Computed example of a mutant assay.
Amino acid sequence: MIEFKLEGEFIPLIQLLKATNLVATGGEAQIVVTEGLVKYNGTVDYRKRLKVKQRDVVEFDGQKIIVT
């Protein structure tokens, strides 16, 4: 489990995946999102510009990110 401290109101999903080092580049993040490999609050989500906020949970590649 990864706990990510949010600075501000939200973080785009692609930036969150990069900031937690689950992907190496923004391009890679876009690919994994469009291929349906990322879950947002328990549901597969295909939105690249999704705004992740406090108390949201993102899952990818066996890792769970909790945004605080």
Results as ranks from 00 to 15, higher is better:
residue 1 M to F: 02
residue 1 M to N: 04
residue 2 I to D: 01
residue 2 I to H: 04
residue 2 I to A: 03
residue 2 I to V: 13
residue 3 E to L: 08
residue 3 E to Y: 07
residue 3 E to A: 00
residue 4 F to D: 01
residue 4 F to M: 00
residue 4 F to A: 08
residue 5 K to W: 03
residue 5 K to V: 08
residue 5 K to F: 02
residue 6 L to A: 07
residue 6 L to R: 15
residue 6 L to T: 10
residue 6 L to S: 03
residue 6 L to D: 02
residue 7 E to M: 14
residue 8 G to P: 00
residue 8 G to C: 02
residue 8 G to D: 06
residue 8 G to N: 12
residue 8 G to I: 10
residue 9 E to V: 02
residue 9 E to M: 13
residue 10 F to Y: 14
residue 10 F to P: 05
residue 10 F to Q: 03
residue 10 F to D: 00
residue 10 F to T: 02
residue 11 I to M: 03
residue 12 P to Q: 14
residue 13 L to Y: 01
residue 14 I to R: 11
residue 14 I to L: 14
residue 15 Q to F: 15
residue 15 Q to C: 14
residue 16 L to F: 10
residue 16 L to G: 03
residue 16 L to Y: 03
residue 16 L to I: 15
residue 17 L to N: 00
residue 17 L to K: 01
residue 18 K to D: 07
residue 18 K to F: 10
residue 19 A to S: 12
residue 19 A to E: 14
residue 19 A to Q: 15
residue 20 T to C: 15
residue 20 T to E: 04
residue 21 N to F: 12
residue 21 N to S: 12
residue 22 L to H: 00
residue 22 L to S: 05
residue 22 L to N: 05
residue 23 V to H: 01
residue 24 A to M: 13
residue 24 A to D: 09
residue 24 A to K: 15
residue 24 A to F: 10
residue 25 T to M: 13
residue 26 G to D: 07
residue 26 G to F: 12
residue 26 G to W: 13
residue 26 G to A: 11
residue 27 G to E: 11
residue 27 G to I: 14
residue 27 G to W: 13
residue 28 E to F: 01
residue 28 E to I: 04
residue 28 E to P: 07
residue 29 A to I: 11
residue 29 A to N: 05
residue 30 Q to F: 06
residue 30 Q to K: 15
residue 32 V to P: 02
residue 33 V to N: 12
residue 33 V to P: 02
residue 33 V to H: 07
residue 34 T to H: 08
residue 34 T to V: 09
residue 34 T to S: 13
residue 34 T to M: 11
residue 34 T to D: 08
residue 34 T to A: 08
residue 35 E to D: 07
residue 35 E to W: 06
residue 35 E to K: 15
residue 36 G to Y: 00
residue 36 G to I: 00
residue 36 G to W: 00
residue 37 L to V: 07
residue 38 V to Y: 02
residue 39 K to E: 04
residue 41 N to D: 06
residue 41 N to C: 10
residue 41 N to I: 12
residue 41 N to T: 03
residue 42 G to N: 07
residue 43 T to M: 14
residue 44 V to D: 04
residue 45 D to N: 15
residue 46 Y to Q: 09
residue 46 Y to I: 10
residue 47 R to S: 14
residue 47 R to W: 11
residue 47 R to F: 13
residue 47 R to K: 15
residue 47 R to C: 13
residue 48 K to D: 08
residue 48 K to V: 09
residue 48 K to W: 06
residue 48 K to R: 13
residue 48 K to N: 05
residue 50 L to C: 11
residue 50 L to Q: 15
residue 50 L to S: 09
residue 50 L to K: 12
residue 50 L to I: 11
residue 52 V to D: 02
residue 52 V to K: 01
residue 54 Q to R: 14
residue 54 Q to M: 11
residue 54 Q to E: 09
residue 54 Q to G: 09
residue 55 R to W: 04
residue 56 D to H: 05
residue 56 D to W: 07
residue 57 V to Q: 08
residue 57 V to S: 04
residue 58 V to Y: 04
residue 58 V to D: 01
residue 59 E to W: 04
residue 59 E to N: 03
residue 59 E to S: 03
residue 60 F to T: 01
residue 61 D to L: 11
residue 61 D to G: 13
residue 61 D to I: 08
residue 62 G to P: 03
residue 62 G to Q: 06
residue 62 G to N: 10
residue 63 Q to S: 11
residue 63 Q to L: 10
residue 63 Q to C: 06
residue 64 K to L: 06
residue 64 K to R: 13
residue 64 K to I: 10
residue 65 I to C: 04
residue 65 I to G: 07
residue 65 I to P: 08
residue 66 I to R: 05
residue 66 I to S: 07
residue 68 T to W: 07
residue 68 T to F: 06
